[in-house]
Simulated assay, not measured.
Amino acid sequence: MEFNRIITLLRKERGITQKQAAAELGVSQALLSHYEKGIRECGLDFVVRVADYYDVSCDYLLGRSADRSGLTLTVEEIPNPETAKDSVYKGSVLPTLNKKLISNSLNILFSKLAACPDKGLVSEVSAYLMLAVYNMFRLLYASAPKNAESLFRVSPGRWQGYSAAAMSTAQANVKAALDGENMGNGPALKDTSCFAMTTESLSKDYPLYATSLFNLIKNSEGRIDRVR
């Protein structure tokens, strides 16, 4: 399932037709179409050919690595955007790993937003992310009965519903802005070319952080697959 998705992604990122890719890979367009749709499974020789053609690793093609090079990083090897020296939290690697994946991915997200002329978009994206952190922090805080609820202004019976509504509003505003609607805080966004990107361009532009983003996407979609 990963292989057919990834070879389709790579072809489209390169901007070539299925007919052209098939010819250069030495197979018929019909066969390549079957591979991309997951109707047929290919042999190892074709996997290697595709890896050479798109300059990626076989592990990446097979979904074993989220990085084009096939790199699998340990928590110590993932770049830390902070100066903190701690590599683990109280002996646990997982919180540190996840924190790095999120922090490094946010670096890319806000770098892309910085190139956008619509600064209102940054505000809406930031609002959504801050609300997500607020939600998780408040749940943790409320789980300890001795914690004073007066830290928060919104009442216990309302905050979850209100927060969900605020997040939905922020997400809707982001979608509307990207669709070219005027958000009332400046000219409408007419050109989203500043957000054009491929896995190759992300790896090149953000060599320290791209692997974290790719792993965050992979982990998130794995979580989605378990609930859909």
Rank of each mutant, 00 (worst) to 15 (best):
Tyr35Gln: 03
Pro145Lys: 04
Gly43Pro: 00
Arg49Thr: 15
Ala164Thr: 14
Lys204Ala: 13
Met167Gln: 14
Ala148Tyr: 06
Arg40Phe: 09
Leu151Thr: 14
Ala172Met: 09
Ser155Ile: 01
Gly26Pro: 14
Asp67Glu: 05
Ser212Gly: 15
Asn135Val: 08
Asn185Glu: 04
Ile7Asp: 01
Ala84Leu: 15
Gly222Leu: 05
Val48Trp: 05
Gly180Thr: 03
Ser150Asn: 11
Cys194Lys: 07
Ala30Asp: 07
Ala172Leu: 10
Cys42Trp: 08
Arg228Val: 09
Val75Lys: 05
Gly161Thr: 11
Thr199Val: 04
Asn173Glu: 06
Met183Glu: 00
Arg228Gln: 08
Asp225Glu: 13
Leu151Ser: 10
Tyr89Val: 07
Asn107Thr: 15
Met136Tyr: 11
Ser168Val: 06
Thr17Ser: 15
Ala115Asn: 13
Phe195Val: 08
Pro117Trp: 06
Val122Gly: 01
Phe214Met: 07
Cys58Ala: 13
Ser69Cys: 03
Asn185Lys: 02
Val93Pro: 02
Leu131Gln: 10
Asn215Gln: 15
Asn4Pro: 00
Arg153His: 09
Tyr162Lys: 15
Lys175Asp: 03
Lys190Thr: 11
Ala22Trp: 02
Val50Met: 08
Thr192Cys: 15
Lys119Thr: 09
Val122Leu: 08
Ala177Asp: 00
Glu200His: 14
Arg158Met: 14
Met197Pro: 00
Tyr128Leu: 13
Ala30His: 05
Asn147Arg: 06
Lys99Pro: 00
Gly43Arg: 14
Asn104Ile: 02
Asn185Gly: 03
Leu32Thr: 01
Lys12Gln: 10
Leu10Ser: 01
Asn135Asp: 11
Ser168Trp: 04
Asn147His: 12
Leu131Ser: 13
Gln171Asp: 07
Thr211Met: 07
Lys146Pro: 11
Ala22Pro: 10
Ser143Met: 05
Cys116Gln: 02
Ala166Met: 14
Gly70Tyr: 10
Gly161Ile: 04
Gln29Cys: 02
Leu94Ile: 03
Arg228Thr: 12
Glu13Cys: 12
Gln18Gly: 09
Lys218Pro: 02
Asp59Cys: 10
His34Glu: 12
Arg40Gln: 05
Ser126Gly: 09
Asp45Tyr: 11
Gly63Lys: 10
Leu216Asp: 04
Tyr53Phe: 15
Asn182His: 04
Pro79Ile: 02
Gln18Thr: 10
Arg40Asp: 01
Asp86Trp: 09
